[in-house]
Design a protein around this nucleic acid. Structure first.
Length: 206
DNA sequence: ACTACGATTACCT
DNA sequence: GGTAATCGTAGTG
């Protein structure tokens, strides 16, 4: 009988209670948590170091701002749903927040690679470790997550989830403007571990 | 059918 | 620092 290998970390999976908090709260609290995806026998993942909040009200930058469509429907599913969308021939991954029908999510932009780094390197090609998962599309490619994974559950899928890291001390969190958007560009809804060398852009205190 | 555009990235000076 | 590549969406006719 085939048994799925258990996660390579001692810690609790984040549950619906976590994701249904206010989106900016979730985005900030995700810094220092572990995201894990099992591909074959190998767990891929690392510590989350950079996130952005996309709100369900008064946020024109959010994909939900113009309502439900065929392509953003999983953003309106239950909190803890994975929302994967294509952009510039690449993919980005989000965790749905608030409650079903709202359309709010946290974009996970960068992680510190920890588990399955050799396998992630094979997905990404020959890049420096610093560039392995230092951006939302780099992260998806390394974790082997694409549109086919849209709608999976971060709270119930045995091969995918985000976990509390009991053995790692809490990290500092700094707040900045979101990256790469034109609407609502002034809002401070990006959260980073300012010390991390694995950010999509280095943190600069203003 | 055609067009414009984007929550990006790699590569250039 | 700047910019070209790339393709799925969404809006228009």
């Amino acid at each position: 009988m085939k048994q799925a290998p258990s996660i390579p970390i001692s810690g609790e999976r984040l549950t619906t209670d976590f994701y249904q908090q206010a989106t900016a709260t979730v985005a900030k609290a995700l810094i220092g948590k572990a995201i894990l995806h099992r591909v074959g026998a190998v767990w891929l993942g690392g510590w989350i170091v950079e996130t952005e909040a996309y709100l369900h009200v008064r946020d024109p930058a959010s994909h939900s701002a113009r309502g439900l469509t065929a392509s953003n429907r999983s953003m309106f599913q239950a909190p803890g749903t994975l929302y994967v969308y294509p952009i510039h021939a690449k993919h980005c991954l989000n965790a749905v927040t608030e409650s079903a029908g709202q359309g709010a999510a946290v974009l996970i932009r960068a992680i510190e690679p920890v588990w399955g780094t050799e396998r992630m390197q094979s997905h990404r090609g020959p890049v420096n470790m610093r560039r392995l998962t230092a951006g939302p599309a780099m992260l998806c490619q390394a974790l082997d997550i694409d549109r086919r994974d849209d709608g999976r559950s971060l709270t119930h899928d045995p091969d995918l989830g985000i976990f509390e890291a009991s053995e790692v001390p809490p990290r500092a969190v700094a707040t900045t403007r979101r990256i790469g958007i034109s609407k609502s560009a002034h809002r401070m809804l990006r959260f980073v571990d300012p010390q991390s060398p694995f950010l999509s852009r280095p943190y600069r205190k203003k």
